[in-house]
Amino acid sequence: MAFLEIKNFQKFFDKNTVLHDISFSIEKGEVLAIIGSSGSGKTTLLRCMNFLTLPDSGKMYVNGEKILDAETTGHLSEGELRESRLHFGLVFQQFNLFPQYTVLGNLLLAPNLYLKEVVAKLPKEERSRRLTEGTAELESKANALLTRVGLSNRAGAYPCELSGGQKQRVAIARALMMSPDILCFDEPTSALDPELTGEVLSVIRGLKSSDSTMVVVTHEMEFARNVADKVIFMANGIIEEMGTPEEIFNHPKSGLLKAFLSKALD
């Protein structure tokens, strides 16, 4: 079984079909790029995978475990939903850093809260030791991740003191703090000035070499062609074409894809 498998996702907003019977799968360590014009359903698909909206029908499996079933997910408690959600990380187009926390604070906020909950379930005599250990581990993990995205010298800075590219790199490190199985990117460079996209894309490229499984919604065709193992072209809520970058970019079959590429690569 594939590492991530999505079966028959459907999503309606009012009477409009935003996602129409979406199914695909990827293997561990693969990078999937999702391309397509705006309004094609790419972002909705990503939001469904991250439980920010729920699909009206369909199922999702990670590593063989069913983590989403549209029939039942609506009835899950907040706690159960969180556990499923933590299989995924999401990097937003607009970064969404927490402005009142420093860079390091942004990285540590969620994992520290999670640690406290885990520790609270342990027997009393172990709690304080595990909390100290866990906190120290998280801090060294955060520092390692900041080094990895090239921002170890900005740990104490506030988001308003960073450039767009730096913010997005912090957002990537923050998502990695929760060790997601699959890291998703929603047009990670679309809100950036052109000269800043390079630094973000090279961080994502670096993650690929460390075997992370990633799903990237992007308008950067060069990036999709060079980094992705698999490309999905979406149009009007369906997967219009799916294949290797070679197939999608060099031998497109569908008319819509050909039209899209000739515009995008202009």
């Binding site: 937003f92 607009q94 927490f98 906020l109 969620a110 809260l113």
Partner: peptide, 12 residues
């Protein structure tokens, strides 16, 4: 986005 960023990080 602030709510969503917290949600995807597993916060209540």
């Amino acid at each position: 986005g602030q709510w969503e960023a917290g949600q995807v990080l597993g916060m209540k």
